[in-house]
Simulated assay, not measured.
Amino acid sequence: MMKKTYSLLIVLICLGCFWACQEDDQTVLQQPESFVLNTPKYVSGVYDLKNTETLEFTCTQPDYGFTAVAIYSVQVSLTEDFSEYKTLPGTHTTAKIEVKGSDFAVALVELLKIEEESQYPTDLQPVYVRLSSVLTDDGIGKVYSNVITLPKVKGYFALEPMVMPENIYLAGNITDNWNWNKATEMVPVHSAEGKFWAIQYLGKTSENADAQIKFNTVKAGDAAFGSNDITIDEKSVDLAGITTNDDGNIVIGTPGWYIVVVTTTINGRSYEYAVEFHAPYVYLQGDINGGNWGTTDAAYRFTVPDLSAGASAEFVSPAFTAPSGDGGVRASIVLEGYDWWKTEFIVLNNKLEYRGAGEDQDRVAGKTGQKLYINFTAKTGKIE
């Protein structure tokens, strides 16, 4: 009996030692108070941002209590207390950090709050720099470095580069009475940056009012652009019976379904938008129509719903004249000057899927005699 008691005691002691070792091995996050941003070796020289491709900074990693990959951001200010500052674009994961001189210059323009080149100060100015460090994108372990001074910085009137919009939205009295949360997200044309399209119902409202629309790059009515900010070609004006009103809305005098196209160009520091309206023609493409790719033959055109059916009516294809084969069931609109596949779409699992600016899509099979049904408002569809 005594022997068994000793054996049990030894087991318990060993287990206690094991768990103690496990606790010692646990990783515990320590929150450092700061970390060191090193003063650059040649800090006394002039930083001529217009002629400086990159600025280099180095630091020591914050002591989080364990080896971790810190995510650094560079922040700049015109005051040492950082009462107002700008975070430069990009993040860094090494203790040697390079930032673009142009990004640095843009931040200074924003901090100086100047809008014209003539307002930019000609004297050298001190600029203050610090780093922030986090361990995760949601800010765990956030800590700031010390502040260093670059005493002689020569900036210039630098502006952020103009880039094409990533999204265009269409809204109006036909989207739940100007509800931008229900705006139509237009589809990018493949390989045509800044060009978007949508098949849109522009019939009369339930109050028998003409459809009125505007566009924006975000789902919001603020700064939406309409008739005062765009150009519309005469052919589109005649097709859709377009007029305008005092609110700058585009008024559709001829109710119907339309392909709406927005083309964005950059002119200096301004965006310019051209809007086109086309007949809502959708075509079957490829194997299912006998191998005709890029066709605009009316024999392979979907039927356009009657306006009385409303926005949720379905477009219906002709019956497939052949099985889908390796090409799958494919459909598109066709815009002049663009290959058909740059505006193609398919139905997968009863959902309408646009190719947009993405890669080639999955394939879905179809049989001779079947048809493709698409609800462009609900973004649904079926093959049967």
Score class of each variant (00 low, 15 high):
G221S: 07
K100D: 03
G90C: 03
V134S: 05
I333C: 06
F277L: 03
G101H: 03
Y6W: 05
I97Y: 10
D287H: 02
K195E: 06
P323W: 02
N173Q: 07
T380N: 12
T265C: 06
K367L: 13
T243E: 14
W341L: 06
W178E: 11
E33V: 13
V347M: 14
K113L: 04
V163S: 14
Y201T: 15
T296Y: 06
F315R: 11
V261Y: 02
L159Q: 05
T54H: 06
V163R: 10
L284Q: 01
A313D: 00
P165T: 09
D63G: 06
E314T: 09
L78A: 06
G290T: 00
A299S: 09
L159V: 03
V127N: 04
D222N: 14
F215Q: 00
V282T: 04
K86C: 04
K50P: 07
L202N: 10
G369R: 12
K379T: 08
L239I: 05
A313K: 03
G101W: 00
G253S: 06
A357W: 13
Q370R: 10
H92I: 00
V143D: 08
Q75S: 10
A298I: 01
D229I: 15
N349T: 05
T295E: 14
I333N: 11
E117Y: 02
Y120G: 05
K235I: 02
Q30E: 15
H190N: 15
A20I: 11
Y354P: 06
P280H: 08
T52C: 00
Q200M: 08
N375A: 01
V304C: 10
Y338K: 11
S83M: 08
Q200F: 12
S83Q: 11
A313F: 01
G294E: 02
L131D: 10
F82D: 00
W19P: 13
E166F: 03
V129R: 04
F82L: 09
D339F: 12
L135M: 08
G194N: 01
K235T: 03
N292A: 14
S145H: 04
D360K: 13
A331D: 07
T87H: 13
V329I: 09
G366C: 03
W19A: 15
Y6V: 07
P121M: 01
M1D: 14
G155P: 07
E207H: 02
Q200A: 15
T136L: 13
Y128W: 02
V129T: 06
P62K: 04
K50Y: 09
F57I: 07
R355G: 03
M164I: 09
N173M: 07
Y354W: 15
T296H: 10
E276W: 08
A279R: 15
K96M: 05
T136R: 07
D48L: 14
A158L: 09
V237H: 11
Y6G: 02
G141L: 00
S324L: 04
Y258T: 07
T295R: 00
V316I: 05
